[in-house]
């Protein structure tokens, strides 16, 4: 009897292991296929029997991608825009989230719901008017214009994340600071922000990642290669007659790796941040 039970348990374990392994393998395969293609030479990319681990590892695709296009410019543009958006979002959202979490005022629930709704509206409709307005005020083809438009998603998202953190933060310290005669502004800078450093860092990472990969606005609002960002550049790396998969996958890898590394490093914070909204509701 015990033996049968034992066998049943082993069979169950094998079943669980094999199914989860198959699912995970399918999920990670495209990523490793991208990496693998990026380090293959041309003959091996187009070989009749494709291999995941190349016979010969080469960096020629990276060389091509980096030196035969303005990849460096796009890379720097992406970094500038992402950092600037993150800073603006940090500044504006911290105050907005703190105000929403700690004070009662008229229109609070309207503002809160508006922030949630902004993440749900279809962007193409929005971008039409943003584009027309930006043409009129000459913000097209400018990294600053891009940063401003990125606040449409970065500010609401960061605010909601931070607000739910502030909600859980005990307010007694702030209260006693106020009793000790600490002004509201210095309470925020001396007590709230230091206490919330982990949450603010997580939020900053999210704002950075979201801006780093944003595509539609960058495609619409940037018209010259001088100000082009990475996602748009990669989407345009497709040749006219032939697609150069090697350099394309190398570009995609350079574009993807920073995000993957950040995520693996800050996994705990980022995963809880990403699932928080849904789980809390």
């Amino acid at each position: 009897m015990a033996l049968v039970e034992e066998k049943k348990r082993t069979a169950r374990m094998v079943l669980i292991y094999s199914s989860i392994t198959i699912i995970i393998l399918i999920l990670v395969f495209p990523f490793f296929w991208m990496l693998s293609t990026s380090i293959k030479d041309k003959t091996e990319i187009f070989s009749a029997v494709p291999r995941l681990i190349p016979n010969r590892i080469t960096l020629e695709n990276y060389h091509k991608m980096w030196f035969e296009s303005k990849f460096y410019t796009y890379f720097i543009n992406s970094i500038i825009v992402s950092i600037a958006t993150t800073l603006v979002a940090l500044l504006v959202s911290t105050f907005l989230a703190y105000g929403l979490a700690r004070f009662r005022f008229r229109g609070k629930s309207v503002i809160f719901n508006m922030l949630i709704l902004t993440q749900m509206f279809p962007l193409p409709l929005l971008i039409i008017t943003i584009y027309i307005s930006f043409v009129q005020i000459k913000l097209v083809d400018s990294l600053m214009g891009l940063v401003i438009s990125y606040c449409t998603f970065a500010v609401p998202f960061s605010t909601l994340m931070l607000k739910s953190y502030f909600d859980d933060l005990p307010y007694e310290l702030e209260e006693s600071a106020a009793i000790d005669g600490c002004s509201p502004v210095s309470t925020i800078f001396k007590i709230v922000i230091p206490l919330s450093a982990p949450a603010i860092t997580t939020m900053g990472l999210f704002a950075f990642i979201l801006s780093w990969q944003e595509f539609m606005m960058a495609l619409t609002l940037i018209r010259t290669t001088e100000f082009r960002t990475l996602p748009v550049a990669i989407s345009m790396m497709v040749g006219v007659r032939e697609i150069f998969w090697g350099p394309l996958m190398a570009g995609s890898t350079v574009f993807t790796l920073p995000v993957v590394i950040m995520f693996m490093y800050f996994q705990k914070n980022l995963v809880s941040g990403m699932t928080m909204g849904a789980v809390k509701a």
Binding site: Q213, F215, M274
Partner: peptide, 8 residues
């Protein structure tokens, strides 16, 4: 899959 940017 979630962290790979859409365009990549």
């Amino acid at each position: 899959p979630w962290v790979v940017p859409n365009i990549a």
